[in-house]
Design a protein around this nucleic acid. Structure first.
Length: 464
RNA sequence: GCGUGGGUGGUAGAGCGGUCAAAUACACCGCGCUGUAGACGCGGCGCCCUUUGGGCUACGGGGGUUCGAAUCCCUCCCCACGCACCA
């Protein structure tokens, strides 16, 4: 206790003389916070600016659960922001939610997550760090980012301690979350804007006249409500899901952080941490809320199943292509979140037209991960290959073993999941050797060194 | 613990003894058109095969009835709602 107090004092005494190397220049701070990546601050912007300009060296963290072995752009933009805060001289922590990953955040589908083994988590994290390397200076001598694992403290909590944590919250507080409300009461989609409102059925019956859509404020009239599915699509809430915010909240306490950087969907969990911090440590924790990079038109997030994910494990060419495949509405979002081109240039770039603006952003993002040269190559390759359909350049090579059939070669790429699928593609004319469709997968693959094999529109190979 | 209704493909959701590898919609894939965008049009969307056909595996798990079951019966598991209970 005494030790903590004295540290606090020294930090305080450093104010003004900049000996601790903390940048408190409002312009520098503004540049980071006003770009548009951060959308909210809790308890308030003023309070957050207050600590950031106090001169105190702050401990700032952002977390991610290692449920998959690859990160995508929406992770990247958080790490980029974190890195900028580190640039101000603050201590930053990348928290790996190896413990929470095993429980599952209720934010998702609400489905039980598959249990990850310790080994799988380790493997995932190893790959992560490689993917994040270009975004954060891990080899910085003075102030390197730290990587911590929340199993270090969460797995050691006793049941008694967990209960004690739980006693800081009420079920009502948990139920404030829209996401839980919808699962309890069912979803009532607004006919106008399709927003899934959560009202209790009998309240609706009684006071339908006075209820309005939480999003577009359209008044609901009785019988004018669309429920999604029977009973309004009610779904179970498991008890442990209520505990998730507690765990994430306790992370803040265990690390004794000053600021948590989180995505907007994590606000509730971050606030739980704020509560615990105040109760357990009598300390104010601030929250910097980042946007989710949702499609401004549809509200959709990038998703693997929709084919709109941009994975950090992608090669320069793949990454460039994945960004070009984003909907046009995402250009500005990508510009703000994933590049650091000065904001003043935004309008000019947007005026170049969707195709060119997107290309510019794509090049810039690839540059962040792979450097200028690779980015230019990716762009040149893309233009040549897909815009001009010129296949004379470098292509991934594919070896055709003597006697192999078209099916053998196609499956060899691992881009086609089954023989049946290959058959369908062939029948649809999607498999082409030097622009000649191979519609029969059982036929022998013509042996023609240097020929171009295309499978669908995205996979192009040179026959070796 | 009681009662009622349910558990079907990536999702929602039809089917309720053969004509079901399973309607429809969304998602996804391909072709066309393009800017590897969007919109639109057409096609596809379990796996395997010597493919206008055949085989195998699937409708929560297991067992049964039947010539034949996603469909009927038994049993187990799970979910929602209601009732009861609530230290």
């Amino acid at each position: 206790m005494l030790w903590c107090a004295s540290v606090g004092w020294y930090a305080f005494s450093d104010m003004g003389n900049k000996k601790n190397g903390i940048i408190t220049d409002p312009d520098a701070i503004n540049k980071i916070l006003r770009r548009g990546v951060a959308v909210d601050a809790l308890p308030s912007w003023g309070a957050l600016y207050g600590v950031l300009t106090s001169g105190k060296r702050l401990r700032i963290y952002t977390g991610a659960d290692p449920t998959a072995d690859t990160l995508h752009l929406s992770h990247a933009k958080n790490f980029m922001l974190l890195e900028e805060l580190r640039g101000l001289g603050h201590e930053v922590i990348l928290l790996v939610g190896d413990f929470t990953a095993r429980i599952g955040d209720p934010t998702g589908r609400g489905e039980a997550r598959k249990q990850l083994t310790q080994k799988e988590v380790k493997e995932n994290v190893k790959k992560w760090l490689l993917q994040i390397r270009p975004l954060m200076k891990f080899d910085d001598k003075k102030n390197p980012p730290k990587v911590l694992y929340n199993s270090a403290w969460l797995s050691r909590l006793s049941f008694q301690e967990a209960l004690s944590l739980a006693s800081n919250f009420t079920v009502q507080q948990m139920l404030e979350r829209d996401m839980f409300r919808r699962r309890v009461y069912g979803e009532w989609r607004c006919k106008k804007c399709n927003y899934p409102n959560a009202f209790e059925q009998n309240i609706l019956d009684r006071t339908a006249q006075s209820q309005e859509c939480q999003k577009c404020h359209q008044k609901f009239l009785k019988n004018e409500i669309v429920s999604s599915g029977d009973g309004g699509n009610k779904r179970p809430i498991y008890l442990h899901e209520f505990l998730y915010p507690l765990m994430q909240g306790y992370d803040s306490v265990a690390m004794d952080v000053d600021i948590e950087l989180c995505g907007r969907d994590q606000t509730f969990n971050a606030l739980a941490g704020r509560t615990l911090m105040r109760r357990l440590k009598d300390k104010e924790k601030y929250i910097l809320v980042a946007n989710l990079m949702e499609n401004p038109k549809t509200g959709e997030l990038m998703s693997k199943s929709r084919g709109t994910g941009v994975f950090l494990s992608a090669s320069p060419g793949e990454m460039y292509g994945a960004i070009m495949a984003q909907p046009d509405e995402m250009i500005e979002t990508l510009f703000i979140n994933c590049t650091r081109i000065p904001l003043e240039e935004k309008d000019g770039i947007m005026r170049m037209g969707p195709r060119n603006a997107k290309a510019r952003v794509a090049r810039e993002i690839v540059k962040v991960f792979y450097g200028e040269k690779k980015a230019q190559e990716a762009e040149a390759g893309f233009t040549q290959l897909f815009s001009r359909k010129d296949y004379t350049g470098d292509l991934p090579e594919i070896r055709v073993a003597p006697g192999s059939t078209v099916a053998d070669v196609v499956l060899q790429t691992h881009k086609v999941p089954s023989r049946s699928e290959a058959r369908r593609l062939a029948a649809a004319g999607a498999i082409k050797l030097d622009e000649e469709a191979l519609s029969d997968i059982a036929q022998k693959m013509p042996v023609r060194a240097g020929a171009v094999l295309r499978i669908g529109k995205k996979h192009i190979y040179r026959v070796k």
